[in-house]
Amino acid sequence: MDTSVTPDAVAELSAREVRRSVLSRWGFRIGVVVGWLSFIGAWYLVTEFVLGAQQLPPPHVVAQEAWEVLSDEGFGATVWASLLRVLVGCTLALIVSVLFGMVIAYSNWWRNLLRALTRFFVSIPSVALAILALIVFGVSGLGPTLTATLVATPYVMSSVAQGLTGVDRRLIVMSESFGRTRAQIITGVLLPSSVLSVIGGARQAFALAWRIVLLTEVFAASDGVGFQIKRSFESYDVRGLLAWTVLFIGIMLLFENFVFRQLERRAFGGAHAVGGTGRQQ
C-alpha cells in the first residue's frame, strides 16, 4: 500500500477540509434560521390556541410596537441610561474579579476565605438585593450599578481564577530564574496567558449585569429599560412590555456578536502570536 505524501494528495486533503468547513458554517447558519423560525411558529401557535392575542400578542404585533418604541425620541436616552449602568457595573466587577482572582490562584488562605464569601453572596436572591438597593440608595442610578457589580463579581472571579490557575507554571519559574519581578511576571506572563479567561469573565459579567440592572431598575430607578418595562406592566401594556424585552435581547445579541466575539478572535490570534514568539526565542 502506497502511503507516500504527494502534492496531489495534500491538495485533495486541503480541498476536503475546505469543503467540510464551508458545509459546517452553512449548517450552523441554517440551524440558527430554523431555530428562530421554530420559535416564532411556536409563538403564533400559543397565541392562537392557548393564551389569545390579548395575553400574548403575536410576533408581528410585537415587532410593530418595537419599531414604534425604537422610533421614539426618548429611546436612545432610555437605552443609554441602562447601558451606562451595565458597563460601569461590568467594569467594576471585572477589575475586582481580576484582583481577587490572582489572590485566589496563589494563596490557599485567601482562596478558602473568598470561596466562603462567594457562596454567601451567590445564595442571596437577586430580588432581595434589588429591594435592598432601593432602601439604601433610593430611586437613583447608583443602586442598579452597585447591585450589578455585587452580583456579577463572584461568578466572574471564579472564571478568572480558573484561568490564572491554568497558567503554565514553567513560564513563571523561567521568568523568576531570569530575575523578573512579581509585577513583570503578572503583566508579562499571567495576564497575557489568561486573557481569554478574562474576556470570558467580561462576557459573563456583561450578561449578569444586564439582567440585574434591569431587575433593579424596576424597583429603584426612574429611567432605563427596566423602568419602561415596569411602566408597561403597571398599565397592562403587554405589547410594550414584550417590545422592550425584544429590543433588550437584540442589544444583547449585538454586543455578543460584534464586541465579545471580536475581542475573543483577536485575543486568540494574539495568544498564538505570543506563543509562536516564545517558541522562536
Rank of each mutant, 00 (worst) to 15 (best):
L94A: 05
C90K: 01
Q228E: 13
F255I: 03
S140T: 14
V160G: 14
L254A: 10
T277S: 15
S175A: 15
R170W: 09
V238H: 01
G278K: 11
I249Y: 03
F137D: 02
T3E: 14
G201C: 12
Q162I: 10
I212E: 01
A271I: 10
E73V: 10
R170T: 10
W244I: 03
Q262W: 12
Q162M: 12
Y44E: 07
G35T: 03
L196M: 15
I186G: 10
R111P: 01
S232H: 05
F219C: 06
G276H: 13
G275L: 14
W110L: 13
I249F: 05
F248N: 06
P57I: 09
V18F: 01
W26N: 03
G141W: 02
T153L: 05
L171G: 09
T216I: 08
S107T: 01
S21Q: 05
A221I: 07
L191Y: 11
L13F: 11
E176N: 10
G276S: 15
V151G: 10
F178C: 05
Q184R: 08
G31K: 03
R20K: 08
E234R: 06
A221C: 09
V156W: 14
I30P: 00
V10S: 09
R231Y: 06
F178Y: 10
T118R: 09
T91C: 01
F260S: 07
V98W: 06
I185Y: 09
G89I: 00
T6S: 15
E65H: 03
P7M: 05
T6H: 11
E234H: 03
Q184G: 08
L146G: 04
Y236K: 02
Q184K: 06
S4C: 04
G31M: 06
R239L: 04
S197T: 08
L134E: 01
L253E: 09
W109F: 11
S235I: 00
Y236R: 04
T165H: 08
Q228I: 09
R119L: 13
V69W: 00
G141A: 08
R169M: 12
E65Y: 06
I124K: 01
V127M: 09
Q54F: 12
A15E: 05
W26K: 00
S159W: 03
R239S: 11
V167S: 15
V22C: 05
E12P: 02
V156D: 13
S97P: 04
F248H: 08
W36R: 07
L87P: 00
G270E: 15
W26E: 02
V22Q: 06
G35S: 12
L241E: 01
A53L: 07
V160W: 08
L191M: 07
T6R: 09
M157A: 14
